[in-house]
Simulated scan of single mutants.
Amino acid sequence: MASFREKVVLVTGASSGIGEATAYKLAEHGATLFLVALEEDKLQIVQQKCREKGLAEEQIGYCSGDLSKSAFREEIVRNLIQKFGRLDILADIAGSVLFSSVSETKEEDYDRFVNVNQKAKLFLAQLCLPYLKETKGNIIYLSSICSTIPLPTIVVYCMAKVAIDMLTKCLAKELGPHGVRVNAINPGYIVDTNILRNSTLKTTDEDQKKYADTAAEQAHLKRVGKPSDVVSLLLFLASDEASYITGSINYIDGGYHLYP
Results as ranks from 00 to 15, higher is better:
L38A: 08
E40N: 09
L43E: 00
Q44A: 14
Q48S: 15
C50K: 06
R51Y: 07
L55G: 06
A56V: 03
E57I: 12
I60R: 05
I60L: 11
G61N: 05
C63P: 04
C63M: 12
S64P: 11
D66F: 10
D66M: 01
K69A: 14
S70Q: 13
S70T: 15
S70K: 13
A71W: 07
F72E: 08
R73Q: 15
E74L: 08
V77F: 12
V77P: 06
R78Y: 10
N79H: 14
G85Y: 13
R86W: 00
L90M: 03
D92Y: 15
I93Y: 10
I93C: 05
I93A: 07
S96L: 08
S96N: 09
S96G: 15
S96K: 09
V97W: 05
V97C: 10
S101E: 11
S101M: 10
S103V: 08
S103M: 04
S103H: 09
T105W: 02
T105V: 15
K106V: 00
K106L: 05
E107H: 00
E107G: 00
Y110G: 00
D111M: 07
D111C: 04
R112F: 11
R112N: 03
F113V: 01
F113S: 02
V114H: 02
V114T: 03
V114Y: 02
V114P: 00
V114Q: 05
N115K: 10
N115R: 06
V116S: 11
K119A: 08
K119E: 10
K119F: 04
K121R: 12
F123M: 13
F123G: 00
F123E: 12
L124Y: 14
A125N: 13
Q126H: 15
Q126W: 11
L129M: 14
P130C: 14
L132P: 02
